[in-house]
Computed example of a mutant assay.
Amino acid sequence: MSTNRNTTIRDRHRRIIARNKPPCAWAHCLYPGIPIDYDAGPDDPLSYVVDHRIPLNKGGSDTLDNKDPFHRACNRAKSDHLPDEEPPGGIRIHVTKRTW
């Protein structure tokens, strides 16, 4: 099942969440005590991303109150699991390189 996402709303939510530079919201953060780097590029594992607290494929909404800040690496490891849930088989780290 695919969910249509509005990029204008996505970008607005990212700006709102980033205002106070909050810490990573994942209970199993890979970098506890290390702040999210809000200025880092997209390949940096400490860079800022926003993820859904309750994944869309588990019935979550694409609203601001269902979004949290994460380190990029934590978001990749969390995948589509709930924030306080450790993924089955332990934490997996995915590293990808993209050229835009």
Rank of each mutant, 00 (worst) to 15 (best):
H94S: 10
P83T: 08
G89N: 08
D84C: 10
Y48G: 01
A27V: 14
T7P: 03
P69A: 11
K21S: 11
G59E: 02
S61L: 15
D37H: 10
P35G: 05
L46C: 01
K97A: 15
N20V: 15
P42L: 10
A77T: 06
H94I: 12
P55M: 02
T96D: 12
P88R: 14
P22R: 05
C74S: 06
N66C: 09
C74K: 03
Y31C: 08
K21T: 10
S61G: 06
P22L: 08
H28P: 09
P69Y: 05
S79Y: 15
P32Q: 10
P35F: 07
P83G: 09
R98V: 14
I9E: 06
R53S: 02
I54M: 02
K97G: 11
R5C: 02
H52S: 03
D51Y: 00
P69G: 05
C29E: 10
P45Q: 04
H71W: 12
P69E: 07
H94Q: 14
D43F: 10
T99V: 14
A73S: 12
G33W: 08
A73G: 04
R98H: 13
R10W: 08
R19I: 15
N66D: 06
T99E: 11
N20W: 12
P87V: 14
R72F: 09
T63W: 04
T3K: 03
R53Y: 08
L30Y: 02
E85S: 13
G89T: 14
M1H: 11
I36C: 03
I16C: 02
C29H: 09
Y48L: 02
P88N: 13
L46I: 01
V95T: 15
I34N: 05
C29T: 14
C24R: 01
V95D: 06
W100E: 11
R14I: 02
P83A: 13
N66W: 04
A25N: 02
N6G: 03
R92Q: 13
W100M: 10
Y38R: 08
H71R: 14
D65H: 06
H13K: 12
T3P: 00
D68V: 15
G90S: 06
E85I: 15
M1G: 11
Y31V: 13
R92K: 15
G60P: 01
D62Q: 03
S61F: 05
R15T: 08
V50D: 00
N66V: 11
R14F: 02
P35H: 04
A18C: 03
P22M: 07
C29W: 07
R5L: 06
L46K: 01
R98G: 13
D62A: 09
N20R: 13
T99D: 13
D80H: 14
D44I: 06
C74Q: 04
K67S: 09
S61M: 09
D39F: 05
N66Y: 07
S61H: 07
R5H: 05
P22S: 06
V49F: 01
T96W: 09
W100T: 13
P45M: 04
